[in-house]
Design a protein around this nucleic acid. Structure first.
Lengths: 201, 201
DNA sequence: AACGCCCTTGCGGATATCCACAATAGCGCC
DNA sequence: GGCGCTATTGTGGATATCCGCAAGGGCGTT
């Protein structure tokens, strides 16, 4: 499998081609667009990889595209390409959460390394997202009562105490507790605590 | 108690005074230095608060001071003051982990707000550090055996299983387990798991 | 009405945990 | 040698947890 896909957006065809050649020689798939508008039209939330984005372009600027993508919930890491006159804009970009940026003319190896880092960041993000999504799905499958019991189990409380607090019999708590473990896919309260501590915040 | 201390470093006395007046009017203590060297001489690792640092100064620049402080293990948030000609340097600063930066001439309210945010960040950092330090101290007080038992308890294993794995009697495991709880200041395996999951990584 | 889902509870037994009391043993230190 | 710390184990009892078996009620859907 490939190292990931780099989406190149620059209105200078020569640069797109140079980037494309450089990255492909490092085993990175590439796709190119000549304008921010063009990329936006093709963008979908399932898109994976990273962006290499010229910050200065005709019509819609790279920064503007970045803002729109952010609004669309896009989380792909973005590497901006900047001329050294565009630096104030680059500052904005970084503060807004751009992954990195490089000044033109760029050093080939350096840029490729950063793209690779960006692709790795995207993968990590999705790994974390998958795990979190799985946990959320499991949590959503709990009934209200089960959730109440789980919260108290996580508080380290004994079944007896939980029963008192909820005004139900201990046996009932045990049943809920066991359902919680089953639904959450764990076999002990310890595992549950680690699952939730590791997958949230 | 005060909102925190802002350390002002700028070779322009007029700016130092203006900053100092502004911040004090917002309840923030200030201390001023006219040079990076002067601040470095006074710096100690116990220093708390944040820095407001002119990025362009005689002799040692703000960025250079920032690098040295980082090497010294200083984690105070740094807000850089930059003229708009210094922007490329500001970019470097942000990439190196500066907390924020503002361009001169600055808007009073905006700058004060950022200083307040920086002070809050410093407090949070120390809160986290204190908790982590406390946990590490407790962990260090565990004997080797206790640690071995704890690791397995966190794995959700039953005392019986742990006893088998370590080749000792269940009773011994129980003793270690109880010591671990006592030393770590928790009363159940669940609490322990949450303590370690929340304080590490 | 019948079915499914959830909440509820009781009984009883197999396991596990928690702990006080008690004891043996190695190791380093004064 | 005595003292303290750590590791080790045993006995026995009070609690807790884990679970299958059994069963009643509420609620919404078909």
């Amino acid at each position: 499998m490939s190292a990931g896909i780099a989406h190149l957006i620059d209105d200078d065809e020569a640069i797109r081609d140079a980037l494309s050649w450089l990255l492909r020689s490092r085993g990175i798939e590439t796709r190119s667009w000549g304008s921010a508008e063009g990329f936006l039209a093709d963008y979908g939330s399932a898109m994976r990889g990273c962006l290499v984005l010229d910050i200065r372009m005709q019509a819609m600027s790279g920064l503007e595209l970045f803002d729109r993508l952010t609004q669309l919930g896009c989380t792909m890491p973005v590497i901006f390409l900047t001329g050294h006159g565009d630096v104030p804009v680059a500052v904005q970009a970084i503060k807004k959460g751009a992954f990195d940026f490089v000044e033109k003319p760029f050093n080939d190896n350096e840029l490729a390394d950063r793209v690779i880092a960006a692709l790795a960041a995207d993968r990590d993000l999705w790994l974390g997202r998958d795990r979190k999504h799985d946990i959320e799905t499991r949590l959503a499958s709990l009934t209200v009562r089960e959730r109440e019991v789980m919260d108290r189990v996580l508080g380290g409380k004994l079944n007896k105490v939980i029963a008192d607090e909820l005004g139900i019999a201990m046996r009932t708590v045990e049943v809920h507790r066991s359902h919680v473990f089953e639904k959450m896919g764990v076999r002990s309260a310890v595992d549950l605590a680690r699952l939730l501590a590791g997958g949230e915040e």
